[in-house]
Nucleic acid binder design. Structure first.
Lengths: 211, 211
DNA sequence: GCCGAAGGTGAGCGAGCGCTTAGTGTGGCC
DNA sequence: GGCCACACTAAGCGCTCGCTCACCTTCGGC
């Protein structure tokens, strides 16, 4: 059905790597359902229904409901990490790279809010093993941002007292976008990305950030 | 400080206004359970068990499980609003008042993480009427912070381009503390409050914020 | 034209859910 | 002492949950 395949804003294309087709439809349906109601409040019947299938079909492609969440979470975190890596490893000053990292990371959280919500807020619904795997990815995410801030601080381009704390705050600011961003609200993901990049440059004391 | 909440077992003293004793014990048990596992994953048997009572006892003091969440959410939001009001209405420059607001708001989210998690992240588990009531409180919370930022901008003490967007970001930053703060981590609530107050003053371009 | 693998369905299992009800113990008041 | 209002419990109702199973369809290879 079109409802399952067209996640608002065309988020579906991000799941192109998932095959076969039925498995992808179920995954996209699960993302929508988890984002709307939360993992525990979502039933397997709801997921299957959104994908236009019977409840039993889910268990042909996934062992349990939790495996669905695990797959979503891993793919989502890998995508988030890739976004930050791209910004972190491009050419340019720490200021430029930090602004790029924040604006693209925020764009992802705002534009792909449905996915981002699940990725960022349903971590604790995973079992211990799956959670440990995802936490390792999160540490890498953290490391990318911290790397830029460290470099800018070392070069004197930034003025940061507590690098770890500031990294935490920057990531926290970006991630929380998934909680409050409203597609029907007054701001586009691009506008929020730009605003946040400016705010973050101010937080790290980058020259010429204010004004 | 009298605002400081501690005791690993729970932040029980904050619920002093709830009577009778059994109703308060159930409420505190619900806060802990909701914070740990989420509203939907928490059973009435779990709540009653933590309070040392049978499942049926819950329904003597509360009509439904949702009423428990509603009560927790309202009391919590009122407390949060009170904290911001106190900071907003004290004497001092916008810079001082904003720093005070942020640091005390953050302290509340970090120190009372258990409560704050429920208050900030289980809003969508409420029914439409209860949610509307809580959203009205949130708008007041928003207004308090925006008021300070507006005043500082008008007086030239701050340098803010997008007042609404910046207000959103400041609150977002504070609220997300409830997601990541770890009682066993390296920072105390006070330290995070201080760090965040500094970061927020930088965000609004307050003079002399970057030390 | 037959076959087995792959992908799907309808019915339904055991478990656990939120919540109710009938009955029990207890303390205060006459 | 007799009585009732109250706080609480044991048992369990009706329902929905995650998940399974017996069976059905489709289709490429020979």
């Amino acid at each position: 059905m079109s409802t399952a395949e067209e996640t608002a804003g065309g988020e579906a294309q991000a799941w192109g790597e998932v095959t076969p087709d039925a498995a992808r439809r179920l995954l996209v349906a699960a993302v929508e359902a988890f984002a709307e109601r939360g993992y525990h409040a979502t039933t397997t019947r709801d997921i299957a229904g959104r994908a236009g299938m019977s409840p039993a079909a889910l268990y042909i492609h996934y062992k349990t409901k939790e495996e669905l969440l695990h797959r979503i979470s891993r793919i989502g975190h890998e995508k988030a990490l890739e976004i930050l890596r791209t910004a972190s490893r491009r050419e340019g000053s720490p200021t430029e790279r930090l602004a790029d990292a924040v604006s693209s990371f925020v764009r992802w959280h705002a534009g792909g809010r449905t996915t981002a919500r699940v990725v960022q807020y349903e971590l604790e619904s995973l079992g211990p093993d799956a959670r440990a795997e995802i936490l390792a990815l999160r540490r890498q995410v953290d490391g990318e941002v911290r790397g830029i801030i460290e470099e800018g601080t070392r070069s004197g381009e930034f003025e940061v007292i507590d690098v770890h704390g500031t990294t935490l705050a920057v990531l926290s600011l970006c991630i929380d976008v998934a909680r409050w961003f409203n597609v029907d609200g007054p701001r586009t993901p691009e506008q929020v990305g730009e605003l946040y990049a400016d705010l973050v440059l101010r937080m790290v004391g980058a020259r010429g950030a204010a004004a």
